[in-house]
Amino acid sequence: MTEPSRDTVPSDEILVAFLDGELDPDKRSQLEHLVETDEAVAERMSFLASSNLPFRDAFEPLLHKAPKAELETMLADVLPPLPVKEQARGWSRRSFLAACVGFIAVGIAADRTFLGVQASLRDEPDGSDWRSAVAQYMSLYTADTLGTGPVDVALQTSQLRTVGSKLGLTLTPDQVQLPGATLKRAWMLAYEGKALAQITYLDANQAPMALCIVQSPKGAKAPEIEQRHGMNVVYWSSPTHAFMLIGKEPLEDIKAMSEELRRSITV
């Protein structure tokens, strides 16, 4: 081999690949020879090698900072996907369902679905279509959906703070407790791109129930009742928000619970 000149100083890419053990044996021995015979190459190699830092150790503590328990809970709460049925219509509702799993928290425009729910809804002019979507989604819930683990008040407090802040409300566990029901989780869903808070409970019979809230500037409205998907619904509005309480408990009980909520959540 002839004495290498400046022109043959290998690129940083090649030198780094050498340091990383990514060169094949031929290139590797060529380069070893160069390092021994060419000072410029040796110098550059030594400079680049000073970036051989303890990367693994440096990033190890970050693993311990991960909110492991919360991530585990989150994973347990991700619903198993159902087979997806492609349909010509109903995409906005499917977006709603996909968004149910928390995309909204990061504001991802989720235009995909993982739940193949029949979207047979009509747009209803009186603003009731969000209740229809919620009821449809609720009809898929079981006690297992909401988890059977112990109640974690600190977690609930932080969840409620988060969902409240997205809607311009202050929410605490005390405010949303319902007689005879166990408060479970609060999370953000979306309906037609609008933030929708869902606060979930298990009723006395371990059936899922939920309080849902959206922002609605249409003005205050007194409570009304309706039935959807075999569940009782009480819905009302404040000047700034619309609420619905949905569950399988008898209508009188749901009404009584909704009265508690109307008293405790003032906006």
Binding site: L62, L71, L75, V78, P80, A98, V101, G102, F103
Partner: peptide
């Protein structure tokens, strides 16, 4: 989960975004 979260922190530099990224990853993977 913790390795995914760490990678999400490296990408986003932010704890809350990392939480959400891991969640979205779980949903998408399933």
């Amino acid at each position: 989960l913790t390795r995914l979260w760490r990678y999400a922190v490296v990408l986003s530099h932010q704890r809350d975004v990392a939480d959400d990224l891991v969640q979205a990853t779980c949903v998408r993977a399933l």
